Amino acid sequence: MERFKKPLVISCGILRKEIEHLQRKGDIDVEAYFLSEKLHMDYNLLDRGLNCALKKHQKKSHRGIVVVYGDLCLGFNDEMKTLISKYDAVKVDALNCIDCLLGGKGNLLNLDPDHKILFLNPAFIEFGEKIREETKEWTRETYSMLDGIVLLDALGDLDDYQSKIDEIVERTGLPIIDRMDATFILPKHLSSQSQSERFWPDKSSRINTLNFKNYCQAN
């Protein structure tokens, strides 16, 4: 059986371009395995996909596995924590994929405590089939509770997506209120673990997601 000499990252495909960019730059030295971003549309499918990936790869990396998903990607009742605890793996400290691009540790809630912002990175821009498939009336009604859009730029290539960004703006009726340089959590996570020969799970630091959970249940 082939074994990886580097830490293995298992990540949502939403963050594929950012991770591969960091690999090319030499900012991170990892093997990477990506699950389809479309699994986000069904908790059960994502649960099965992550379980299969972890079972398949857990014996291949003697440096351990780093999971790049959010605490809430499987639901609001510690489903992700329960899944990760079954394996010799550690997960980055982030609420969801967008929080991963904001430095993690709940920074998403600091920037958007009232959940009024639509954050878009290149993958989310391309992943917006629902925005393009539904009628403009349905789309504007669906997004009417939001204040605007914040673009997250981790690759310096957002200008390449301008036509799709313009389409999202036009169909949602939301203005662009900011464009931010993304601060991806993964390099910092790997750096903090670099003194360890193995990426052992850290079960002591869990983010308090109560406010986010209560908001989502109320809406």
Rank of each mutant, 00 (worst) to 15 (best):
V66C: 07
T82G: 11
I165G: 03
L210C: 10
T209I: 10
G104R: 05
L54N: 03
G104A: 05
E137C: 05
Q23F: 02
G49P: 02
F34V: 03
Q162H: 03
K213S: 12
L120Q: 03
R198V: 10
K188V: 10
T82W: 08
H115V: 02
C73I: 05
I165Y: 01
R132G: 07
I168P: 00
C100N: 01
F124E: 02
R16T: 08
E170F: 02
L151Y: 10
L151K: 09
G148S: 10
K164F: 02
I176E: 06
R171L: 05
H62S: 08
S194A: 10
D71F: 13
I125Y: 01
G104I: 01
I65Q: 06
Y87I: 09
R206D: 14
D27M: 02
L72I: 08
N214M: 13
S85N: 12
M80V: 08
K25M: 13
V30C: 00
Q23G: 05
N219I: 12
L190V: 07
I207G: 13
N219M: 08
Y43R: 10
L146W: 14
E137H: 07
E134A: 11
Y33H: 11
D88I: 11
C97K: 04
M1L: 14
D88T: 10
K91W: 12
H115E: 00
N219K: 09
N44E: 08
A218C: 10
E133R: 14
F212K: 12
M41F: 08
I65T: 06
H21I: 04
K91H: 15
E18G: 07
E18P: 10
T172D: 00
S192E: 14
N77C: 13
D78H: 10
S163G: 01
L190P: 11
E167Q: 02
K203V: 15
N77S: 11
D27Q: 05
Y215N: 07
S192W: 05
I177L: 08
P122L: 01
E79F: 05
L146Y: 14
I176N: 09
L151H: 10
K81S: 13
N219V: 10
D157W: 03
S36P: 04
D112G: 01
L158M: 00
N96D: 04
D47F: 05
K203F: 15
F124A: 00
N77P: 09
F199S: 13
N77Y: 13
C216E: 09
D153S: 10
N51H: 06
R16Q: 11
I14C: 02
D88K: 11
A53V: 00
C216H: 12
R3Y: 15
V68F: 03
N107M: 01
A32N: 04
L109N: 06
